[in-house]
C-alpha cells in the first residue's frame, strides 16, 4: 500500500484552475521532487496536501485512509502526519530556537516536556544547531533559521515532509548547509516532497522526479529518465534550459 496517494486531484484559486488531474503514488521513504516552470502549481500542490487550500475534486489518501479536508479537526490532526517548510523560514520570533521546536509537541499536543526536550535537542543536534538552543531567530543566519524550521517541522515526527524551495531565499554560501541537512534526512527514510531549483541536488537525492506544467503532471519518472531522457517535449525543453545554465 502506498503511504501517500493522490487521485485525480483538482484545485483552483477562485475561477482560476491551478491543478488538474494530479495522480501520484508515493511509497514510504521515497523522495519525490517536483520541478517545473514558475506558476506550474508546485507550491499549490503542497498547499492542498497541507489543507491550506481545499481541493475541488479528487482524493488524498494517507496510509490508505482518505483525508476529509472539510473537517477542521481532521486537518489539524493531519498536520502532525504531514509537515511543511516554506521558502521563508517563518520561525516564531519571540521564542528561542529550542522553544520553537518544543512548542508544538508540548503546548499543542500535550506531550511530556522532558521527553519532548530530549527529542528537540536531538533534532537540533542533527541539523547542526546544538550550540544555539537559547538563541532567538533574529540572532541566526538565514541558513540556521531554515534548519531550525526543518527541526520544528520534524518535532511531531511526521510521516511526510514537504519542502517548498527551502533554499531559495538563502545566500548561496548558506545553501549547502541546508541541502546537507535534507540529504541526511533523506537517508534516514522519511518520505519527502521537495520543490527545488537546485537541479543537481534534486537529481542526486530523488527517487522520483515529477515534472509539472500548467497545473498538470506532464511527466514523472526516475531522475535519470527525467534529466537524461525526457519523453515529453515540454519536459525536454525545461530540462534542456536548466541544464544549460
Amino acid at each position: 500500500m502506498p503511504q501517500l496517494e493522490i487521485v485525480d486531484l483538482k484545485a483552483s484559486y477562485g475561477s482560476q484552475k491551478v491543478l488538474e488531474h494530479i495522480n501520484l503514488s508515493v511509497e514510504k521513504g521515497e523522495i519525490v521532487s517536483l520541478i517545473g516552470p514558475s506558476g506550474s502549481g508546485k507550491s499549490t500542490l503542497l498547499r492542498v496536501l497541507m489543507g491550506l487550500l481545499p481541493p475541488e475534486q479528487g482524493t488524498v489518501r494517507l496510509d490508505g485512509k482518505s483525508v476529509n479536508y472539510a473537517n477542521k479537526a481532521e486537518v489539524r490532526e493531519l498536520r502532525s502526519s504531514i509537515a511543511i517548510v516554506f521558502q521563508q523560514y517563518n520561525l516564531f520570533q519571540n521564542m528561542t530556537v529550542l522553544e520553537n521546536v518544543m512548542i508544538t509537541p508540548t503546548r499543542i499536543k500535550g506531550w511530556p516536556k522532558a521527553q519532548v526536550e530530549a527529542d528537540a535537542i536531538r533534532l537540533l543536534t542533527r541539523v547542526g544547531l546544538a550550540h544555539r538552543l537559547k538563541a532567538y531567530p533574529d540572532e541566526l543566519s538565514g541558513g540556521q533559521q531554515q534548519r531550525v524550521a526543518i527541526a520544528r517541522a520534524l518535532a511531531l515526527k511526521p510521516e511526510v515532509l514537504l519542502l517548498d524551495e527551502v533554499t531559495a531565499a538563502l545566500d548561496p554560501e548558506l545553501v549547502t548547509e541546508v541541502l546537507d541537512t535534507i540529504r541526511e534526512l533523506a537517508s534516514e527514510g522519511i518520505t519527502m516532497f521537495i520543490v527545488s531549483h537546485e537541479m543537481s541536488f534534486v537529481r542526486e537525492v530523488s527517487s522520483k522526479v515529477v515534472f509539472m506544467a500548467d497545473g498538470l503532471v506532464v511527466e514523472s519518472g526516475s531522475p535519470q529518465q527525467i534529466f537524461d531522457n525526457p519523453q515529453e517535449p515540454r519536459a525536454r525543453d525545461f530540462v534542456g534550459k536548466i541544464l544549460r545554465h
Binding site: 491550506l52 489539524r76 509537515a83 517563518n90 499543542i108
Partner: peptide, 27 residues
C-alpha cells in the same frame, strides 16, 4: 503581527485560540 508566523502555526496544527494565545498575544 507577522502573517507568516500565523501561517506557520496553522500548518503545525494550532487552532485559532492557540494561535492567539501562543503567537499573536506574546508578539
Amino acid at each position: 503581527v507577522r502573517q507568516m508566523e500565523i501561517e506557520a502555526a496553522e500548518v503545525l496544527g494550532f487552532s485559532t485560540p492557540q494561535i492567539i494565545r501562543h503567537v499573536i498575544l506574546p508578539h
